[in-house]
Computed example of a mutant assay.
Amino acid sequence: MFSTIPDVLDQREIEELRGIAARAAFIDGRASAPGAPLKNNLVVGDRGLLERSAQIVADALFRNEDFRVLAFPKAMMPPILTRYGAGMYYGTHVDAAFMPHPGRSLRSDLSCTVFLSDPADYEGGALVVRLGTEEVRLRAPAGAAIVYPSTTLHRVEEVTRGERLVALTFIESRIADAERRDLLHELKEIGAIAGPAMDIDTYTRLQRVEENLFRRWADPD
């Protein structure tokens, strides 16, 4: 499953992140992914600005209810502010299964792109996710996030005009199995949509199913 979540960042956060990007020194994106010859982008190289931008994006994601019930996040890599100028791209790849995280390795279950540029600010630069024999091209407005399985083949098309500014992160879910995660997410969506119309006994039974499946399937801390 992949999903576009609108308004993860508010306008103040978007402007602060754009300001960080405007004054930051960017370095070759391959520094964050050695051995990735298909990667042609730039990432923030200033540690202080990198940490501040990562905190803004991480806080915004964790406070967003739609993100939490989609991803069931257990841990997250610090989001990396990433720039694609004209001529830049990221070729077809799959994200690494495990990534270095303080104190342990993080299993990448979900990948997340948070958009800081408006679609009108650049041409090209679509996130392309391969689903079986089909490809889905994804763009989103500033402040939105696209979440998709890290197991998929995906790429970023070449930017032909302007600048594509995003923040990238990877999430270890409490529910490692993607099908179980999707089923529990759907149950929670049903509860949110239909719950107000249910009688209290039916709604309580639905909550019991949700919580006991979560208890059975989720990884402990």
Results as ranks from 00 to 15, higher is better:
Ser3Ile: 13
Pro6Trp: 03
Asp7Val: 07
Asp7Arg: 14
Leu9Asp: 05
Gln11Glu: 15
Ile14Lys: 02
Glu15Lys: 11
Phe26Leu: 07
Pro37Cys: 05
Pro37Leu: 01
Val43His: 09
Arg47Met: 15
Gly48Asp: 08
Leu49Trp: 05
Leu49Ser: 09
Arg52Lys: 04
Ser53Glu: 11
Val57Ala: 02
Ala60Phe: 01
Asn64Leu: 02
Glu65Leu: 13
Phe67Thr: 01
Val69Asp: 10
Met77Glu: 14
Leu81Ala: 11
Thr82Ala: 05
Gly85Pro: 04
Met88Lys: 02
Met88His: 03
Tyr90Asp: 06
Gly91Asn: 01
Thr92Phe: 10
Val94Asp: 00
Asp95Ser: 06
Ala97Ile: 11
Phe98Asn: 13
Met99Tyr: 12
His101Asn: 06
His101Leu: 11
Ser111Met: 01
Phe115Val: 01
Leu116Glu: 00
Tyr122Ile: 00
Gly125Asn: 05
Arg130Gln: 13
Thr133Phe: 08
Leu138Met: 15
Tyr148Pro: 07
Pro149His: 04
Ser150Thr: 10
Ser150Tyr: 06
Thr151Asp: 11
His154Asp: 08
Val156Leu: 04
Glu158Ile: 08
Val159Arg: 00
Leu165Pro: 10
Val166Pro: 03
Ala167His: 05
Thr169Gln: 07
Ser173Trp: 06
Ser173Lys: 09
Arg174Val: 00
Arg174His: 12
Ala176Gln: 02
Asp177Met: 09
Arg180Leu: 07
Arg181Pro: 03
Leu184Ala: 07
Glu186Tyr: 13
Gly191Cys: 05
Ala192Gly: 06
Ala194Cys: 10
Ala194Tyr: 14
Pro196Lys: 04
Ile200Cys: 08
Thr204Gly: 10
Thr204Asp: 12
Arg205Gln: 12
Gln207Lys: 13
Arg208Met: 12
Arg208Glu: 15
Val209Cys: 03
Val209Gln: 08
Val209Phe: 00
Arg215His: 08
Arg216Phe: 11
